[in-house]
Design a protein around this nucleic acid. Structure first.
Lengths: 208, 208, 208, 208
DNA sequence: AATGAATGAGAATTCATTCAT
DNA sequence: TATGAATGAATTCTCATTCAT
């Protein structure tokens, strides 16, 4: 699926608004206004508000897949280094596409739309398969322990990162970091999160 | 604040529906029907749909506070044992009040309503202060390491647990556990999560 | 089903507008304006525009049934006299409720709404059964011929009357009666139609 | 007016859809799709949806006129035979062009569009003049009675035939002919209608 | 001659809330 | 205290038509 400029503008505007106000809290009017397109264009291009959401999921899902596929094939790296690379990339991704991950965080709680649920499941499966490959590679080489609960590990990575991104506003106050600028603060928590997750993973994967 | 039976019925119905369909996806008609009260009662008792949500947060926040205060004062237990108790209780709580935690997970992403945001912040602060007390106690006794990133630890506990609860539907499929009944599956993931978090915390708090 | 004043006002307004402009050609806005009620009342009372149409059919169908039941039980009249009475009444009805019969004429051509189709069929069945009763009575007494095609007879009565009512505008010009006032013209065609149908029926029922 | 292939395709598609769903119930999108032409072609060729309807009326009106003119000049036939021929032809026409007659039946009830009304009136006048010619011929020859209500006679022919065609769906059920195939049923009612109308006309025109 | 893209107007419906009782 | 009736505002979506190409 290739999208033209207007379609991309609509998708971006919608993503940002869905992240801020939720799907139901966002009207197609808002989206049209933000994307600076005619109201009717949204139905014209996507059919409905729901279909627009699906298009966003499909689009981002495809992007994520392409990105992750690159990571796994990194040459000349140990399994643990690759896991660390994965953490780096996952954190990069989640911070770069905060809007989309907010939408994802919100929508995965609901199961109103089976098409969206299917897309989310597909995305998660792709992620999981990639990580599983990495872990198994490390286990074969003897780098990692045998019994590793991969789904729970993923849950920790995604859960922690998601929670941090979606509630960073609260985190800032709880850590008394109100003095930092938004950029400084973001840099700070990215670094913290990175170390934190790598620590946890190293422990889970290698400590006896 | 003391609520009468009808008010509690409304709050429970609303909580369940907000968890399922989101705040904006739920109409006061739905709530009135589910709670078997007159449509106008909701405005009458709570003023508005938003105020109803606030009441739910306030109510649940108070319940959580009371519960957690009990935990910290558990006599004759090491700091690590108390931390483990805390994990037990947090997991109990999140599974028992899944509806509320779904609402919380959804609403913390948005910052539309400053009153709600303030309530969430207050709740988080209370939690954090409790854990901080525990950790400092352990540090004083020499049980725990000096440099512990408490907010990040909390983020992992809440993020992982939240993520698991809100996306358990996907977890079931990703782990090929479709054959388990809902109850069996829930028991299974509670146990896994419990071990998983305790492991992580032990490592964070004690390993050098 | 008992309707309150506002509901009746809506139904009357809708009937008139549907007759003039067709169902799809009439907006709920038009109806609300004509009935002098709030726009949302229509959804509130009837659920939707379609359901409103159904309500009209049901209401009129019931009225027709009640009326016709009276005719058949007219005491001390020959079968032919009763048939003539029926013609009188049918013509009265069709002229008095021209709006409804226009709607009926339009909607019976379409089969979009199965509920409406079912209501129309029911109405027609009731009519047919009544006439069949009359004819059979006359046949038993030896007043009428044996082989009478009752559905075709009804088709002629209804078709002719309907066609006249719905296209009286054209009839006026074709008969060069433009000089007559609307009332005079209507009186004129009612009389003509009455004689015409009675003639045809007498011939069908009695001539060998 | 000569139409090219695409124009004819549009008109045919439109006629069929107008017959099924009514004028307002049919969108130009539907027509374009059914006719397999570009959406904008309809405005391009006909100017508007209304003008397209007018074109259909004009086109069919012309066809009817040409056909009927042939009938009247049938050589070596009595006036009654010619009337019978006319009935044959009218029934043929109405069954062959059911779609158009459904549109006609629906639209003659409305008077929204004066151009359409004018076209219908013209069509009816042409028909009427033809029949009047026939009847007067028969009256001159002494075959027919003097006082014949020609407009009412036409009303019966058209009303009965129209009503049968537009409500044949109901007629089938009312006559308990559900077991017949669509073709058999149509053959059956055409025959019935033919005899029925000829009977009525014979009686009107010749009986004293 | 033909069309894909675009749009303003208007459609039906749902919503949270109010108010007289 | 409780509620049925009512409503204004806002919702999503579809429509016939236009226009640059």
């Amino acid at each position: 699926m290739v999208y033209n400029e207007k379609q991309l503008a609509i998708m971006e505007a919608a993503e940002a608004l869905f992240a801020e106000q939720g799907f139901n809290g966002t009207s197609v009017r808002d989206i049209a206004e933000k994307a600076a397109v005619n109201l009717a264009m949204i139905s014209y291009y996507f059919g409905s508000k729901e279909k627009l959401l699906e298009a966003i999921f499909e689009y981002r899902g495809e992007m994520i897949k392409v990105k992750l596929e690159g990571i796994i094939q990194h040459p000349g790296a140990t399994a643990l280094e690759k896991v660390n690379l994965l953490v780096d990339h996952y954190i990069d991704k989640i911070f770069l596409q905060q809007a989309f991950h907010r939408v994802l965080a919100r929508e995965q709680v609901l199961h109103n739309n089976p098409d969206i649920s299917a897309l989310i499941l597909k995305m998660k499966k792709t992620n999981q398969e990639l990580i599983a490959k990495l872990i198994h590679e490390g286990q074969k080489k003897g780098e990692f322990k045998k019994n590793v609960d991969i789904p729970m590990m993923m849950t920790t990575m995604m859960g922690t990162a998601n929670f941090l991104v979606t509630s960073k506003h609260y985190y800032k106050e709880l850590s008394n970091l109100q003095s930092l600028s938004e950029d400084e603060f973001e840099k700070h928590i990215r670094k913290k999160l990175n170390q934190h997750l790598k620590n946890i993973f190293k422990n889970i994967l290698t400590n006896e």
